[in-house]
């Protein structure tokens, strides 16, 4: 086993094992950090696949962004009177486990049984980042613009949905907007 191969096994273990441990952890904060480990493993696998730009994007967006978002969500949605624990539905644990196992087996069967037309990986001669940048603004210009509009819409929508509402307001009719917040509070 060459050195590069053993690196793959390290990253593959880092990706799969913490994800599996999420199933058996009770604390949500601990789950978030297990997810961090799994996503870091995926970033390493991207690096192993010669996708350096993608690997570092994964680190920045997922580990730096989404995970912090999750931790914020955990902090904002926990009441102080109950511990940060999570119940596991006893009725769904067994069928859920077997449903996941079934899907896993089906995917493994397809992945291993299908005769993929693989070719030897082309050696990387130039860095990815300039190629990706040029492709983003030429071949992929339409999805690029669509995604930028989607991000704007998601940002505005998330801000609107999560806006601060007055404590006793019935169904969000009297939410505090920026313009009249002070007047309402008096």
């Amino acid at each position: 086993m060459s050195f590069s191969d053993s690196i793959f096994w390290v990253f593959a273990t880092t990706a799969v094992v913490p994800a599996f441990l999420i199933l058996f952890t009770r604390s949500i904060v601990r789950m978030a950090f297990l997810l961090l480990g799994s996503l870091a493993g995926f970033a390493g696998l991207y690096l192993q696949l010669n996708a350096a730009f993608l690997g570092f994007t994964q680190v920045m967006v997922y580990i730096g962004g989404i995970l912090i978002l999750f931790l914020f969500g955990v902090m904002l949605t926990q009441r102080s009177d109950i511990p940060v624990r999570e119940k596991v539905g006893p009725a769904l644990a067994v069928p859920g486990f077997f449903a996941g196992l079934l899907l896993m087996a089906a995917l493994l069967f397809i992945a291993l049984q299908n005769p993929w037309k693989t070719h030897p990986p082309v050696p990387v001669t130039e860095p990815d980042t300039p190629v990706i940048g040029i492709k983003l603004l030429s071949t992929y210009i339409l999805p690029f613009e669509a995604v930028s509009i989607l991000l704007l819409a998601a940002m505005v929508g998330a801000t609107y949905i999560a806006r601060v509402q007055a404590p006793g307001a019935p169904d969000g009719q009297a939410e505090l907007s920026d313009s009249n917040a002070e007047g309402r509070l008096e």
Partner: peptide
Amino acid sequence: SALVFGIGIM
């Protein structure tokens, strides 16, 4: 990928 997908479903 298949393993992590199954775990996600679980």
